[in-house]
Amino acid sequence: MLSLQTVFDLKMGGEDMAESSSPSAKSLDGGTKEQSGKSASAPRKIPGNLPYLPASGTLKKALDRLIEAARPPKFNPDFLENVLKLKGGSARNTIPILKRMGLLTSEGVPTELYAKFRTESGRGEAALQALRNGFPEIFKRSEYAHAVEDNKLRDIVMEITGLNATDPVAQAIRNTFKVVKSFIPPGFEKVSGAEEEIIDEITGGADVLGVGKAAGTGSATVSGAIARDRTIRNEIGLTYNINIVLPETSDLKVLNAIFRSIKENLM
């Protein structure tokens, strides 16, 4: 039996994204393709259209190294081999994954999300957006899928794909997801656009938390301000109480948005 790494080609939605160089190969969704003239067996149909690589460690190396390398005009096999020093089919198969996650255009040109991922301050947000782009079905099951425990992620993948937890494809999906997740700082969460609109509507756009917003980012930049505030209070021993007047509303979305913001930014 050939190993998963050598016999599996990347598949998304039942269509080949990369071809193995061996005469006989299996697709990542389990379908066998014979190049010797024999008829190919029908590929397995896996629901969810979730992207994955059998060699998730190669994806981790590619993401680590592109942070340090200069942004190329085009992210192609030549850039992978000569700049990132990654060779072989497993390295080339990272390109479709990066396209799927929105880090590259369909032509392989690095996007603004790619540029943000390379920065220290924007990497967590970019990695989260890349996960949302690449694994929308998982985020439909859990809005905070990037923060769930491994057993919860396992159950979500099983629910979407119908595969057993020990299936090599299910494992490859989880490992690919976790590689990108590893670039998101613990406890990181970006307030969604819808929640920001609700809060802005209530406050009239006022900076009620006193921490400001980053121009052009659409997200509250609270981490540094809260950290500085806590440092100052710890140094001089001050405490204070905050009274919040809630709007008169029965809309749970409004209340959830307010309390989530309070929890993430003040507690």
Rank of each mutant, 00 (worst) to 15 (best):
M1R: 01
M1Y: 00
L2A: 05
G14H: 11
G14S: 14
M17Y: 13
S21F: 05
S21G: 13
S24L: 07
D29E: 14
G30C: 08
T32K: 09
Q35D: 00
G37R: 10
P43N: 03
R44L: 12
N49C: 03
Y52D: 04
P54M: 13
P54V: 09
S56C: 04
L59W: 03
K60L: 15
A62C: 13
A70M: 07
K74F: 07
L80Q: 07
L80G: 04
L84W: 12
G89C: 06
S90F: 01
T94Q: 09
M101Q: 12
T105N: 03
P110N: 02
E112N: 04
A115P: 01
A115Y: 01
K116G: 00
R118G: 10
R123F: 03
E125T: 07
Q129K: 15
L131R: 06
K140W: 06
R141D: 06
S142N: 15
S142D: 15
H146Y: 14
A147S: 14
A147L: 13
V148H: 09
L153M: 15
M158S: 15
E159W: 11
T161F: 07
A165F: 00
A165S: 07
P168Q: 06
A170S: 10
Q171Y: 00
K181V: 03
F183A: 11
F183Y: 15
I184Y: 09
E195H: 06
I198G: 01
I198C: 02
G204Q: 12
G204H: 13
G205T: 10
V208N: 06
A214I: 05
G218P: 04
A220D: 11
R230S: 05
I236E: 06
L238G: 11
L238Y: 10
T239V: 10
Y240D: 05
N243G: 09
T249D: 14
L252Y: 13
L255K: 07
N256F: 13
E264F: 02
E264H: 08
L266S: 09
